[in-house]
Design a protein around this nucleic acid. Structure first.
Length: 670
DNA sequence: CCCATCATGGTTTTT
DNA sequence: CCATGATGGG
């Protein structure tokens, strides 16, 4: 893979004169960081200070200095972020940067494990369990141990415990103790002993299935690095420079992965902002970034504090928000833009009035010259946008929403993919049972029985196996199965390429799934459209297997970027959780439900001690997404489905602001 | 015994 | 609006 003709490893190449535009494109802070000498580097980049630009130019700088592109590793929070940065770097440095490896931690771990998982006792064709797969597997483990009492925790809760234990390298027993035995446990009750038993069963089942969940990707990659020195060394030699974006959101495992990867050259550059750490609940620990100078005493630290994004009035609010949390790294955002006006605080009666106010505000912003895609509506939790979605539909305002369910986690997509998975991997039990339970009259039990009867593998290209499967089915199911089998004929031959896979999916939809969707889903039409889009999309991949691997790790943001590229992106309002708005910006930002009981989230406050601080950082992230205009909506009532109302005082994050930070509007005229 | 259907209850954030 | 739980049919 490596190109010849590069300087020998370890020798410091003579830096060529910098292209002039480096100095023009970057301010002195950014330039210093982007052109920092080799060795450990910490870049503390507050919101809107050109963090991405700095990373882009760092990549370009390394390439210009003669570092081969494939020896640069860029770890980002989403794949989309990596893609965009590398695209921009290409504009600056040209072809010298093509071949830089960029992506998420999970992506990197996945890539390494595809190659080396056999060292850990997995087959290299292991499958990846998404959240729903994992949940169902845990449920089956709970049932197998006859623990399914009413007060036993839900599988999703158990999984979050497993995940916390894995990502923070804390013994599960302690995590379970803290969660279920402490005072906050409330209605949940579980013996740590039972939790451990379920966990053990879950681990065993994953092994049997040759499957890894998301956490396993990281955990196993780290295990590989710890236990297999030759593997670690191979990657240390491959990557001469490691760059990490959003470092404040790394967890213990990710931090160690990075430390080990960079241990050879120590050319490690991390960028982040401790005040934008918002993934603590997923094991992220902002102390990773705070302690970086201790772990790397020779690290150079660069601070970016000049904000190019927001008008000064928004930064006043952001700075005040940070000041409310004295225990954190203090920094001050310095404005560069001209004064405009203060953020607005809209006092509203309830969620419906809030929705109408947003629609009205959007109209006004459009009159003022903004396009719909210049405007984003952000909120703490998906369900906060319910009334607004209705109002936008009624007002015929086009909007795009990153909903809670990811594209590839929707039932119909997973149904189609199970067909492809069993083709690619005849031992994929989950894919087989999922496919079979699509047949009327076949449920979990029957599917299991058939699977066992087939010897726990099903090679769809083997006529004998297909004969045995048909024989095992009841007549009604058999007829339905024959329709599916017809689609499999599209894939005769060796490893199917993407376009053959696409044709198989189309056949599957025509012969079987269309009928199934009509009787199963209310909005069957849009689901069939999704399937067609998937079939088209797959054609771009060289193999079905490559496509399946890729999609397992796509994030919401990634998937939606793909959709936008396909759909030629019409003008639309953006609706998003604050978490998914991380790293993005808009001229106009409207923040919903800035009230107690909604934001901060009461569950977070109850569950963990640092909860309020993280919610405050989330508020900071939300307000610093705005360039020109920021509106905070504060409804005073929540209407519950049972007809009751709950009074909501304004959020503490608003009340703790110094006076005159915002302009209060009590009534909006319609 | 196993599967499908309907009612019901309770909602954070995501790789 | 989705996941689980009771119920009835095969």
């Amino acid at each position: 893979m490596r190109e010849g003709g590069q300087p020998p490893r370890g020798a410091a190449p003579e830096p060529p004169a910098l292209p002039l535009d480096f100095g023009r494109a970057l301010n002195p802070e950014q330039l210093a960081a982007a052109t920092a000498p080799d060795g450990p580097v910490l870049v503390l980049a507050a919101a809107g200070t050109g963090k991405t630009r700095t990373l882009v130019y760092r990549v370009a700088y390394l390439a210009a200095r003669g570092v081969a592109a494939d020896r640069i590793l860029l770890l980002t929070f989403t794949n989309k972020a990596a893609r965009e940065m590398l695209e921009r770097a290409r504009q600056v440095a040209g072809a010298a940067v093509s071949g830089v490896w960029g992506g998420t931690f999970h992506h990197l771990a996945h890539r390494i494990l595809r190659r080396y998982a056999p060292h850990l006792g997995y087959g290299s064709d292991f499958t990846i369990l998404d959240r729903d797969d994992a949940r169902q597997l845990v449920t089956s483990c709970v049932r197998a141990r006859r623990l399914e009492r009413r007060d036993f925790p839900r599988s999703a809760v158990l999984l979050s415990l497993f995940s916390t234990a894995a990502n923070t390298e804390t013994p599960l027993e302690r995590v379970a103790q803290e969660r279920f035995v402490s005072a906050a446990a409330g209605d949940l009750a579980a013996e740590p002993r039972d939790v451990l038993a379920v966990h053990a069963a879950y681990e065993t089942r994953k092994r049997e299935l040759n499957a890894m969940d998301f956490d396993d990707l990281l955990v196993n990659c780290l295990r590989l690095f710890r236990e297999r020195e030759e593997v670690l060394r191979r990657y240390q030699e491959q990557f001469a420079h490691v760059l990490v974006d959003e470092y404040q959101d790394t967890n213990t495992i990710q931090a160690e992965l990075v430390d080990r990867l960079a241990a050879g050259t120590r050319n490690l550059l991390v960028v982040g902002d401790d005040f934008q750490s918002i993934y603590g609940w997923r094991g992220a620990d902002y102390r990773n970034i705070l302690s970086f100078p201790e772990r790397y005493p020779d690290a150079r630290t660069y601070k970016l504090e000049t904000n190019y994004r927001s008008v000064p009035e928004i930064l006043v609010l952001a700075n005040a928000c940070m000041a409310a949390q004295p225990e954190q790294f203090q920094k001050t955002l310095r404005p560069t833009r001209e004064a405009r006006h203060r953020p607005r605080l809209l006092r509203l009666r309830d969620g419906d009035e809030q929705a109408r106010a947003v629609v009205e505000s959007v109209r006004r912003f459009r009159q003022a010259g903004y396009g719909l895609s210049d405007i984003a509506v952000l909120y703490r939790a998906h369900f906060h946008a319910l009334e607004l979605e209705r109002a936008l539909a009624a007002a015929r305002l086009p909007y795009v929403i990153t909903s809670g369910v990811r594209f590839f986690e929707q039932a119909h997509i997973k149904d189609v993919c199970s067909l492809l998975k069993i083709l690619v991997c005849p031992t994929d039990e989950l894919a087989f049972t999922r496919l079979l339970t699509l047949l009327t009259g076949v449920g979990e039990k029957t599917a299991q029985k058939v699977w066992a009867g087939l010897g726990r593998r099903f090679d769809a290209r083997d006529p004998a196996a297909r004969g045995r499967l048909e024989a095992a089915l009841r007549p009604a199911a058999r007829a339905a199965w024959r329709k599916i089998a017809g689609a499999l004929d599209e894939l005769q031959g060796a490893a199917p390429d993407g376009s053959a896979g696409g044709r198989a999916v189309e056949q599957f939809a025509q012969r079987f799934y269309e009928d199934y969707a009509r009787r199963t889903f209310e909005e069957w039409e849009s689901r069939l459209e999704d399937i067609q889009a998937l079939a088209d999309d797959m054609g771009r991949y060289e193999s079905v297997a490559a496509y399946l691997n890729e999609m397992a790790l796509l994030t919401n943001v990634d998937a939606e970027a793909d959709a936008a590229r396909e759909g030629a992106g019409g003008e639309a309002l953006r609706l998003s959780t604050i978490h998914q708005a991380k790293g993005l910006e808009w001229p106009v930002v409207i923040l919903l439900w800035v009230c107690e009981g909604m934001f901060p989230s009461p569950r977070t406050l109850a569950e963990n001690f640092g909860g309020e601080a993280e919610e405050r950082r989330l508020f900071y992230v939300a307000v610093t997404r705005a360039r020109d205009e920021l509106c905070l909506c504060v409804p005073e009532l929540r209407r519950m489905r049972d007809g009751g109302v709950i009074y909501c005082p304004p959020s503490r994050f608003v009340r703790e602001l110094p006076p005159r930070c915002v302009q209060e509007l009590r009534r909006v005229s319609f």
